[in-house]
Nucleic acid binder design. Sequence first.
DNA 1: CGTCCCGTTGATCCCTATCAAATGTAGTGG
DNA 2: CCACTACATTTGATAGGGATCAACGGGACG
Lengths: 246, 246
Amino acid sequence: MSHSIPRSLVKDLDLFRAVPEQDLDAVLAIARPMRLVAGDPVFQQGQSAEQFFILLHGHLKVVQTTAEGEQVMVRYVIPGEVFGIAKAMRRPTYPASCMAVEESIVLAWPSSEWDHFMTGNLQFAANALQAVGQRLQDAQTRIKELSTEEVEQRVARCILRLVDSSGEKTEDGIAINFPITRQEIAEMTGTTLHTVSRLLSAWKERGMVNTGRKLVIVRKMDDLIRLAEGNLSDSANKPAARKNPV
Amino acid sequence: MSHSIPRSLVKDLDLFRAVPEQDLDAVLAIARPMRLVAGDPVFQQGQSAEQFFILLHGHLKVVQTTAEGEQVMVRYVIPGEVFGIAKAMRRPTYPASCMAVEESIVLAWPSSEWDHFMTGNLQFAANALQAVGQRLQDAQTRIKELSTEEVEQRVARCILRLVDSSGEKTEDGIAINFPITRQEIAEMTGTTLHTVSRLLSAWKERGMVNTGRKLVIVRKMDDLIRLAEGNLSDSANKPAARKNPV
DNA sequence: CGTCCCGTTGATCCCTATCAAATGTAGTGG
DNA sequence: CCACTACATTTGATAGGGATCAACGGGACG
């Protein structure tokens, strides 16, 4: 006895953009809603990709574990995004693990339905292609940053991006509105929790951010943007660093 | 007066897999073939994405230039692959530049045709999604490597991958069958040409590879694989490095 | 045959990982 | 409600992997 899910919840999602309402209803009829609390796994790396999902509320993280046991953050999932679409790319298993970092609500569909959606509505296929294309862009941006930028710059960009997608205005500045640890920031930027901690401490010292346990609040966006653009952190002037000169 | 392109040239390409032959003929009728020599540009970063392409013969490189003027290799295009499909992901411009590294032949279509292909044949849409999905996987693999592995390991993997996709057996071992510089290897692995040069010299010393101007030949795959898997290069035993222990 | 372009190799330095240890904070069970 | 415990964070000290700086050698091509 599944309650039907209100159409209004999904009709504005990118994936369903310009999809006729009747098709939407058919899609929703077979969606299975799931409620998660912080730490709940959604799927595990290597598992057969039986389902795909859309996040309606909350925040999830997608993490890859290397052969040596190190973790690399693939991405945070924010409300409205599809995830777990391995099967759509003809991958039999999930290439990473996914878990909730706070209370969340997701819709799940059997992977077999993907082809139905694609065949039933061409707009859906185009939307999916765009979604994956956007992720590819993001990944390539990250490669560029890992290849050419220094740690401070990468961490600054990372914080800015999180604030952009999940920022929430508070009396003290703009806060990242879900719990996030130094370790997780390190896994996103290819560094260590120690270095992230040192950076945040330094920034806090200068009043650019406020921090707490699993909490980051940005107080001076402009200064952070300057760091992200590559300006040196200390007022002293070192010569510009340039790894692969033209 | 465009000569029609033989159907046999494209019918085995991933992008056209399971696409009916009559649809293929329609597609080929509007394809524009281009011949390139080493150094010829195909498109430039920032240009309006007016065309998309398939490489029939040769090798191209796709490179991104950062705001600071450093180059990052996005990928090498090998025969049979689609590239320049920015418009399909609803990006108005090419996010990187593409040029031939040796004599090459490509087919070009106006970007506007993409939607025709998609609408006309659903299989095509699925194939495109898979192609982009594969690239996303590759990009994420690279992020993982940049985040957790050391330079020697990354360069070893890079060489192995090139040998895998574009290796050619010679009397001396397996050669990368297109010209490639130390600088380009550096741009693929996030390091400098100096470090790549030193590594190749060391490997050559040990008889693992043979090198020359714009040339790399692998002589001992096994040893190279061992390096890529993370085993230390010198026979001496250092403690295992581990950045983000569990 | 000169001139780029590519590659090699030494010397030095510095960013940041690593090692080590203490402090702070939330949650839990008695 | 408090002791206990697990997890997060901070901070100092040290070392090392590679980037950077510098200079030269060698092959290809016009």
